[in-house]
């Protein structure tokens, strides 16, 4: 088995989906085994397990295959995107920034959190022109959050605005 042919992201996704499905199925059966509770969940879970097992086996076989005999489609999948590994890493970081914004805006205030998110994201995606990026982040936050506070009927926690 060639470990460099395993796609850890794909395995992670499969484990995530199958794990979530298993947890949901057990929770459903734990709630009640009556047909009114299981009529759709059980068949769908079985379908996910079957298809997921097929994909996992395929991934393992791929790891054991001679790279010269890998199906063309597998090769095409990996080369489909124009993104470099650095772009992928930037995506992960951006997702991380999004998580920080989502979980910390109640403490920081929506305005400060959004400003920091935009500034940090802009700098991460293109590390130059810090002053212009800071100005954009400030103006964007002012306009968007100011408008949202006027339009939306819910209280938005903010620090400054």
């Amino acid at each position: 088995m060639r470990l460099d042919q395993i796609r850890p992201g794909h395995v992670f996704l499969l484990v995530l989906i199958l794990g979530a499905t298993l947890w949901y199925l057990l929770d459903t059966l734990d709630t009640s085994r009556r047909l009114t509770n299981t009529i759709l969940v059980v068949p769908l879970a079985i379908l996910v397990f079957a298809a997921g097992a097929f994909e996992l086996i395929r991934e393992i076989l791929r790891a054991r295959a001679d790279p010269t005999t890998l199906e063309q489609r597998d090769v095409d999948e990996d080369q489909d995107s124009d993104q470099t590994p650095v772009d992928m890493l930037r995506g992960v970081v951006l997702l991380g920034f999004t998580g920080l914004l989502v979980f910390f805006y109640p403490r920081l205030g929506f305005d400060l959190a959004v400003f920091l998110f935009i500034f940090a994201s802009l700098v991460m995606l293109e590390p130059r022109g810090y002053l212009a990026k800071a100005a954009f982040a400030a103006i964007f936050t002012l306009i968007v959050l100011g408008g949202a506070r006027i339009i939306l009927p819910y209280p938005m926690p903010t620090l400054i605005l």
Binding site: I17, A20, T21, D27, S32, N37, V41, E55
Partner: peptide, 26 residues
């Protein structure tokens, strides 16, 4: 296989919560 996983998983996610028979799942 991937289409089935995506569609079936989406359907499962759509059933989370209290269903029409009053059962609470997920």
């Amino acid at each position: 296989a991937r289409g089935l996983i995506a569609g079936a998983f989406g359907l499962l996610l759509g059933t989370v919560g209290m269903n029409t028979a009053g059962h609470i799942r997920g």
